[in-house]
């Protein structure tokens, strides 16, 4: 994004420092497969892939929550749509990711277009609830796919090829692909939020009436953001199916959508690295706490309460404050 075209609040405070944090995070993620050869092995890489896929979904959700002020409580439905599209196509014998990915994105985009057009007629709490309703519909619809495992989920017996090659059949191939997708998503979302489109979105969050009176079709902008976020999340879903070779309706359970929201808030909304840090820390905290005790939620629950009560701006905000007032 160009430096001279971002006069608004959060993005303007983006100095060189957050960019270094981003680069450090990406570099650390790139080194994990190397670390895994010494410690953790497949468990570590699979954990990192899970964290990165959730980070992709969280970054796309931040486009809605943080920038658009649209609290979607059904975002994990798009992950599930992507995962199931992949699972069903592979089961049906289409094992080419170059075909699967566009189809998944089209299905997610179509669903986002319809559900978004309906949901965006409401706002505030009603929007939260209606997106929740759509998420639940997807959850139950996936559970009804009798020939694709129904409630029990669907196991993928083959990894998809990439332009005929066996790239995605190896762990490292999947890892690199997911990492590149994460970097791509991060760059894309920041390109979007820094653009005129992103500024209209943020302005509409603060004062939709005024933006509308300036001649912007507010709802169309929000719908576009909703579709973009849904499509990005579906890409994470496709890779989820590839990595774990198993998809189940619980991907779109409302608790999963809740987890995504937690990641965004934990990291800090509408900040350069917030959703990324949030998702990585969420997985890190989950793993390290569950290593200490089976009842890790006893610690994690109150931790969320404290974050909600006291940590305004999330972890990214905390990082900003550690650098002192500017």
């Amino acid at each position: 994004m160009s430096e001279q075209t971002k006069p608004d609040s959060r993005a303007a405070s983006a100095t060189a420092m957050p960019l270094i944090v981003t680069l450090v995070l990406f570099a650390a993620l790139a080194l994990i497969p190397l670390l895994a050869t010494f410690y953790g092995g497949g468990w570590l890489t699979s954990l990192a892939v899970r964290a990165m896929l959730l980070a992709i979904a969280a970054i796309s959700l931040d486009l809605l929550i943080g920038h658009g002020g649209l609290v979607s409580f059904g975002h994990s439905a798009f992950i599930a749509i992507g995962a199931y599209t992949c699972g069903i196509m592979i089961t049906e014998g289409v094992d080419e990711i170059a075909l699967i990915l566009p189809v998944a994105m089209a299905v997610a985009g179509g669903f986002a277009l319809v559900s978004g057009a309906i949901s965006l007629r409401t706002s505030g709490v009603s929007f939260i609830m209606i997106t929740l309703a759509f998420g639940q519909m997807v959850y139950f619809a996936l559970g009804s796919l009798a020939q694709y495992g129904a409630d029990d989920g669907l196991t993928l017996w083959a990894a998809p090829g990439f332009l005929g090659g066996k790239w995605l059949a190896s762990d490292i191939g999947v890892y690199v692909t997911v990492l590149l997708l994460l970097i791509g998503t991060w760059a894309l979302v920041h390109r979007i939020t820094g653009s005129r489109f992103g500024r209209v979105l943020r302005a509409a969050r603060q004062n939709p009436v005024r933006v509308a009176s300036m001649g912007y079709p507010v709802r169309r902008y929000q719908l576009a953001a909703y579709c973009i976020a849904g499509i990005i999340a579906s890409v994470a879903g496709v890779m989820w199916a590839v990595q774990f070779a198993f998809v189940s309706p619980s991907l779109s359970a409302w608790q999963s959508s809740g987890d995504l929201i937690v990641m965004v808030i934990l990291g800090g909304m509408a900040s350069r690295n917030g959703a990324l840090i949030g998702a990585l820390c969420f997985i890190l905290i989950e793993e390290s706490l569950s290593a200490i005790t089976n009842d890790w939620r006893l610690i994690f629950g109150p931790f969320l309460v404290l974050i909600a009560l006291y940590a305004r701006g999330g972890l990214a905000g905390l990082l900003d404050r550690m650098r002192g007032p500017q």
């Binding site: 409580f73 808030i265 629950g301």
Partner: peptide, 21 residues
Amino acid sequence: HLSQVLATFGVILFLNELMKM
């Protein structure tokens, strides 16, 4: 609303786990 969702979500996790324990 977002803080309320987050905090009460945390309360759910805590109490569900407490009952399980």
